[in-house]
């Protein structure tokens, strides 16, 4: 294609974006737009799938049947969310198998929050309340993302996820109102998950290399720092309401701006975890790899069964 032709296509593409016309799979799009989306959507899918592991750890040890049924339903939802997202990535031409291999080889990233261990039952509360809370904060603007299949997947995910945060907060509330030991457990979980939850929004705007282009393409609608601030403003009063303390000595409400000011995030820790040196990075990827290997016979059996059924149908018709 001639160069001025590409320029013209790019101009038309940006015009559609500026007019809030969604881009659909078979529409022309710049390669960089496609690559950015494949990277972001597959990372998002990996996060849903790896995100099942820290919670899966507690399904068999849930304190009662109600909590167990709820946790099972939540983890099952995450599997579904992974599927919606892998499917959205496939509409862009990403190969499902390759995408998953990239996770297993360590080439592809997933949300760094899932590289922290879940040490007590209270962590199920902290994850639902803070981790799903932060995820929802990130995902709500993605429902208006310029790429149709991603936006539609996000609408489904957000609808389903609203119970996730509530069940987590309910666990925290129950523990916070329980015995001193239970309350201490809730506080300990908050202490361990608060800062990693703030890191979920990614680097500060000044350090975020993709933000500007992604905003122009309307893949991203709000910056990392804007979303992080919203999360802090909403979450701090919730913690106060149930009598828990945010582990941040610098946290204070600014009456002039109407926002909370909070302490400096430990970005060294963030980058260490992103680079693979978090407490559970190796465990998580190993678990995924093992799941794929151990599930191989099931997939083979399903394929053999499908073939047998197809042959039987053929015979019947003959």
């Amino acid at each position: 294609m001639k160069e001025n032709n590409i320029e013209e296509l790019e101009r038309q593409f940006q015009e559609k974006i500026d007019n809030d016309i969604k881009i659909e799979p078979r529409d022309w799009m710049p390669d960089a737009y496609r690559d950015t989306l494949i990277r972001q959507i597959s990372q998002h899918a990996h996060s849903e799938i790896v995100g099942m592991l820290p919670e899966g750890n507690w399904i068999t040890r849930a304190p009662n049947l109600r909590r167990k049924a709820v946790l099972l339903a939540k983890v099952q939802d995450e599997a579904g969310h992974g599927l919606y997202l892998y499917s959205a990535a496939e509409t862009l031409g990403a190969d499902r198998e390759e995408t998953i291999d990239d996770l297993h080889s360590g080439k592809a990233k997933y949300s760094s929050i899932f590289n922290y261990p879940t040490l007590s039952w209270a962590d199920m509360g902290a994850i639902g309340w803070l981790v799903d809370g932060a995820a929802i904060m990130n995902q709500v603007p993605l429902c208006r993302c310029s790429y149709g299949p991603y936006a539609r997947a996000m609408v489904r995910v957000c609808k389903e996820e609203s119970f996730h945060q509530r069940q987590g907060f309910e666990i925290m509330t129950t523990l916070a109102n329980g015995t001193p030991e239970q309350k201490a457990m809730a506080q300990d979980a908050l202490n361990r998950f608060w800062w990693p939850a703030l890191m979920m929004f990614g680097p500060n705007d000044a350090e975020s290399k993709h933000t500007e282009q992604s905003m122009r393409w309307k893949i991203k609608r709000q910056t990392n720092d804007e979303l992080r601030q919203q999360f802090v403003d909403i979450t701090v009063p919730q913690a106060e309401m149930i009598g828990l303390t945010i582990p941040d000595a610098d946290l204070k409400f600014n009456t002039e701006t109407g926002h909370y000011e909070f302490g400096e995030i430990n970005w060294d820790e963030f980058w260490q975890v992103v680079k693979g040196n978090g407490p559970c990075n190796k465990d998580r990827v190993d678990a995924r790899r093992k799941a794929k290997e151990n599930g191989m016979w099931v997939r083979e059996a399903a394929a053999a069964y499908a073939e047998k059924r197809a042959n039987r149908n053929k015979e019947k018709r003959a």
């Binding site: 499917s87 394929a303 499908a306």
Partner: peptide, 17 residues
Amino acid sequence: GSLRAADAQMAVENARD
């Protein structure tokens, strides 16, 4: 939406889930 399955019956079952 979409999903992967070995055959039509499995696709319906997965879609249900």
